[in-house]
Protein backbone atom coordinates (compact mmCIF):
# COMPACT_ATOMS: atom_id res chain seq x y z
CA UNK A 1 0.00 0.00 0.00
CA UNK A 2 1.45 3.33 -0.99
CA UNK A 3 1.25 6.72 0.61
CA UNK A 4 -1.37 7.89 -1.85
CA UNK A 5 -3.59 4.92 -1.09
CA UNK A 6 -3.23 5.59 2.62
CA UNK A 7 -4.31 9.16 2.04
CA UNK A 8 -7.43 7.85 0.29
CA UNK A 9 -8.22 5.74 3.34
CA UNK A 10 -7.76 8.69 5.69
CA UNK A 11 -10.04 10.77 3.52
CA UNK A 12 -12.85 8.32 4.07
CA UNK A 13 -12.59 8.55 7.86
CA UNK A 14 -15.09 11.17 9.14
CA UNK A 15 -12.58 12.71 11.52
CA UNK A 16 -10.28 13.56 8.63
CA UNK A 17 -12.70 13.89 5.73
CA UNK A 18 -12.68 17.71 5.68
CA UNK A 19 -8.92 18.09 5.86
CA UNK A 20 -6.78 19.07 2.85
CA UNK A 21 -4.99 16.36 1.00
CA UNK A 22 -1.42 17.63 1.59
CA UNK A 23 -2.07 17.64 5.34
CA UNK A 24 -3.40 14.11 5.25
CA UNK A 25 -0.37 13.16 3.26
CA UNK A 26 1.83 14.65 5.94
CA UNK A 27 -0.13 12.71 8.57
CA UNK A 28 0.28 9.49 6.63
CA UNK A 29 3.94 10.15 5.88
CA UNK A 30 4.84 10.89 9.46
CA UNK A 31 2.86 8.08 11.02
CA UNK A 32 4.14 4.57 11.18
CA UNK A 33 2.48 1.71 9.37
CA UNK A 34 2.06 -1.29 11.64
CA UNK A 35 0.88 -4.71 10.55
CA UNK A 36 -0.70 -7.21 12.94
CA UNK A 37 -1.25 -10.86 12.22
CA UNK A 38 -4.54 -12.44 12.98
CA UNK A 39 -4.80 -13.05 16.72
CA UNK A 40 -2.24 -10.42 17.69
CA UNK A 41 -3.24 -7.70 20.12
CA UNK A 42 -3.29 -4.10 18.97
CA UNK A 43 -3.84 -2.70 22.46
CA UNK A 44 -4.86 -4.09 25.80
CA UNK A 45 -7.54 -2.83 28.16
CA UNK A 46 -6.08 -0.99 31.13
CA UNK A 47 -2.72 -0.25 29.49
CA UNK A 48 -1.60 3.34 29.11
CA UNK A 49 -2.41 4.54 25.62
CA UNK A 50 0.02 6.64 23.64
CA UNK A 51 -1.25 6.18 20.10
CA UNK A 52 -4.35 5.83 17.97
CA UNK A 53 -4.63 3.32 15.14
CA UNK A 54 -6.38 3.80 11.84
CA UNK A 55 -7.34 0.59 10.13
CA UNK A 56 -6.23 0.70 6.54
CA UNK A 57 -7.12 -2.89 5.81
CA UNK A 58 -8.34 -5.97 7.71
CA UNK A 59 -10.64 -6.56 10.64
CA UNK A 60 -10.40 -6.60 14.43
CA UNK A 61 -12.51 -7.43 17.47
CA UNK A 62 -13.16 -4.99 20.28
CA UNK A 63 -13.13 -6.93 23.54
CA UNK A 64 -14.10 -5.78 27.00
CA UNK A 65 -13.04 -7.68 30.04
CA UNK A 66 -15.88 -8.73 32.28
CA UNK A 67 -15.46 -11.13 35.20
CA UNK A 68 -12.04 -12.16 33.94
CA UNK A 69 -13.33 -13.04 30.48
CA UNK A 70 -12.98 -11.03 27.30
CA UNK A 71 -16.36 -10.30 25.84
CA UNK A 72 -16.61 -9.21 22.24
CA UNK A 73 -18.57 -5.97 22.02
CA UNK A 74 -17.93 -4.89 18.47
CA UNK A 75 -16.11 -5.63 15.26
CA UNK A 76 -14.22 -3.00 13.32
CA UNK A 77 -12.85 -2.95 9.83
CA UNK A 78 -11.43 -0.73 7.15
CA UNK A 79 -11.45 3.04 7.81
CA UNK A 80 -12.15 2.65 11.51
CA UNK A 81 -10.15 4.56 14.06
CA UNK A 82 -9.21 2.91 17.34
CA UNK A 83 -8.02 4.46 20.59
CA UNK A 84 -8.42 8.08 19.55
CA UNK A 85 -9.54 9.02 23.08
CA UNK A 86 -6.17 7.94 24.44
CA UNK A 87 -4.32 10.52 22.40
CA UNK A 88 -6.58 13.34 23.60
CA UNK A 89 -6.60 12.62 27.30
CA UNK A 90 -4.59 10.37 29.60
CA UNK A 91 -6.94 7.48 30.22
CA UNK A 92 -6.10 3.79 30.17
CA UNK A 93 -7.29 1.81 27.18
CA UNK A 94 -10.99 1.12 27.63
CA UNK A 95 -10.95 -2.05 25.58
CA UNK A 96 -8.73 -4.69 24.12
CA UNK A 97 -8.41 -4.81 20.34
CA UNK A 98 -7.34 -8.04 18.67
CA UNK A 99 -6.78 -8.57 14.97
CA UNK A 100 -9.03 -11.15 13.37
CA UNK A 101 -7.32 -11.06 10.01
CA UNK A 102 -4.14 -9.54 8.61
CA UNK A 103 -4.58 -6.03 9.97
CA UNK A 104 -2.82 -3.04 8.42
CA UNK A 105 -2.92 0.09 10.54
CA UNK A 106 -1.47 3.57 10.65
CA UNK A 107 -0.14 4.30 14.12
CA UNK A 108 -0.54 7.96 15.10
CA UNK A 109 1.34 8.77 18.27
CA UNK A 110 0.16 11.36 20.76
CA UNK A 111 3.19 13.52 20.06
CA UNK A 112 2.66 13.41 16.33
CA UNK A 113 -1.01 14.18 16.68
CA UNK A 114 -0.45 17.22 18.91
CA UNK A 115 2.21 18.53 16.58
CA UNK A 116 -0.27 18.36 13.75
CA UNK A 117 -3.10 19.96 15.69
CA UNK A 118 -0.87 22.79 16.79
CA UNK A 119 0.23 23.47 13.26
CA UNK A 120 -3.16 23.07 11.61
CA UNK A 121 -5.98 24.28 13.87
CA UNK A 122 -8.57 23.28 11.27
CA UNK A 123 -7.90 19.69 12.28
CA UNK A 124 -8.88 20.46 15.86
CA UNK A 125 -12.07 22.13 14.66
CA UNK A 126 -12.90 18.93 12.79
CA UNK A 127 -12.21 16.88 15.86
CA UNK A 128 -14.41 19.12 17.98
CA UNK A 129 -17.18 18.66 15.50
CA UNK A 130 -16.89 14.88 15.55
CA UNK A 131 -16.64 14.74 19.33
CA UNK A 132 -19.66 17.03 19.68
CA UNK A 133 -21.63 14.72 17.41
CA UNK A 134 -20.67 11.78 19.56
CA UNK A 135 -21.65 13.64 22.69
CA UNK A 136 -24.96 14.49 21.14
CA UNK A 137 -25.46 10.85 20.23
CA UNK A 138 -24.62 9.74 23.77
CA UNK A 139 -27.03 12.31 25.21
CA UNK A 140 -29.66 11.07 22.86
CA UNK A 141 -29.12 7.51 24.03
CA UNK A 142 -29.24 8.66 27.64
CA UNK A 143 -32.48 10.46 27.01
CA UNK A 144 -33.96 7.39 25.41
CA UNK A 145 -32.77 5.22 28.25
CA UNK A 146 -34.32 7.54 30.82
CA UNK A 147 -37.57 7.74 28.95
Amino acid sequence: MTLDEEVEVLKRIPLFSKIDKPKLKLLAFTSERVVFHSGETVCRQGDAGDAAFIIVDGTADILINGNGKDIKVAEVGRNAIIGEVAILIDVPRTATVAATSELITLRITKELFFNLVQEFPEISVEIMRVLAQRLEATNEKLRLAKA
Binding site: P22, K23, K25, L26, F29, T30
Partner: peptide, 20 residues
Protein backbone atom coordinates in the same frame (compact mmCIF):
# COMPACT_ATOMS: atom_id res chain seq x y z
CA UNK B 1 7.78 17.11 -5.05
CA UNK B 2 6.25 15.17 -2.18
CA UNK B 3 8.36 16.99 0.42
CA UNK B 4 7.48 20.38 -0.99
CA UNK B 5 3.83 19.42 -1.07
CA UNK B 6 3.51 18.12 2.47
CA UNK B 7 6.01 20.26 4.34
CA UNK B 8 5.24 23.53 2.61
CA UNK B 9 2.89 24.82 5.32
CA UNK B 10 5.06 23.94 8.27
CA UNK B 11 7.15 26.73 9.78
CA UNK B 12 10.94 26.38 9.55
CA UNK B 13 12.39 24.75 12.65
CA UNK B 14 9.37 22.50 13.19
CA UNK B 15 10.51 19.19 14.69
CA UNK B 16 9.01 17.31 11.72
CA UNK B 17 11.77 18.56 9.46
CA UNK B 18 14.44 16.92 11.55
CA UNK B 19 12.47 13.77 12.09
CA UNK B 20 10.91 13.13 8.73
Amino acid sequence: QTMVEIFADLPAGHPFFDQF
